[in-house]
């Protein structure tokens, strides 16, 4: 952890954090049956901003980011993504999904398709990109995540770290404007975590708008513009990483940090 802490933060000069708000969540509430998972969530994300969401297990982190691309439906309040409000209108949902990329804890690659086919499928069918062009983009993205040589292998033949990087490349092929990461390193062996985090740092440096649910606090210090702490379905505290880690306000945050940082 400390080794990452000492690394210099990513170069922010290249990144133009604009004032444009791309995700706007206000007074959002969600229930699973009678269970109130998310309570009065208010959150604004600006273009180019990198947000790390942390909090104890079961606090609603996954549910929050899954609401942003409608993998879960919220029952109250508003979510506006890139100017489009999330309603039951299927057209809006498909549009938002194609502009918001998501990477999952368990990769969820399509096992019956090769790496390359995993990457070209959505551009070809959703964006109607010609196949050759889609393949070019896919190879470009696979090079970016540093596994172009695995293009013709099936997911089952790759290591966990490689699979997760393919999953990132697959999302990038849709040229998303926002990326959501849900504990993408939690299912990986320790030696593979770094290769995936490096890919994410690289994306952050390029100015991608990112919301990352993660417990990698080193990554948060290095990359995040803002760290959000959630507990019991609420946003308890949010701050710049420096202040968040060195000067947490709420007791719940302090407790959580002391547990996760192992003090």
């Amino acid at each position: 952890m400390s080794e990452l802490d000492e690394k210099k933060k990513i170069d922010r000069t290249k990144v133009n954090l604009t004032e444009e708000v791309v995700i706007h969540i206000s007074e959002m509430n969600k229930w699973f049956g009678s269970f109130h998972v998310l309570r009065d969530i208010n959150l604004e994300v600006r273009r180019g901003e990198r947000i790390v969401v942390c909090g104890p297990s079961g606090s609603g982190k996954s549910t929050l980011i899954r609401c942003i691309n409608r993998l879960e439906e919220h029952q109250k309040g508003k979510i506006i993504v890139d100017g489009t409000e999330l309603t039951t209108d299927l057209k809006n949902i498909d549009k938002i999904r194609s502009e918001v990329g998501m990477v999952f804890q368990h990769f969820n690659l399509f096992p019956h398709l090769t790496t390359l086919e995993n990457c070209t499928l959505a551009p070809v069918w959703v964006r109607e990109t010609p196949k050759l062009e889609a393949e070019e983009i896919a190879m470009e993205m696979l090079e970016k995540v540093k596994i172009p040589e695995q293009a013709h292998k099936f997911p089952g033949q790759l290591s966990g770290g490689q699979q997760q990087r393919v999953a990132i490349a697959r999302s990038l092929c849709m040229k998303p404007r926002i990326m959501l990461f849900d504990e993408v390193t939690s299912a990986l062996d320790p030696e593979m975590i770094k290769e995936v985090l490096d890919t994410m740092i690289q994306l952050a440096e390029e100015g991608m708008t990112m919301i990352c649910v993660t417990h990698e606090m080193g990554f948060a210090r290095q990359v995040a513009d803002r760290v959000i702490f959630m507990d019991d379905g609420q946003i308890v505290e949010q701050n710049e990483p420096e202040s968040f880690f060195n000067d947490p306000k709420s007791d719940r945050t302090k407790l959580f940090l002391s547990q996760i940082l192992g003090h």
Binding site: R97, S98, E99, V100, G101, F104, N108, L121, A122, W125
Partner: peptide
């Protein structure tokens, strides 16, 4: 979820 998140119908 993966195919939905990519925007497939």
């Amino acid at each position: 979820e993966a195919s939905a998140s990519l925007g497939l119908t």
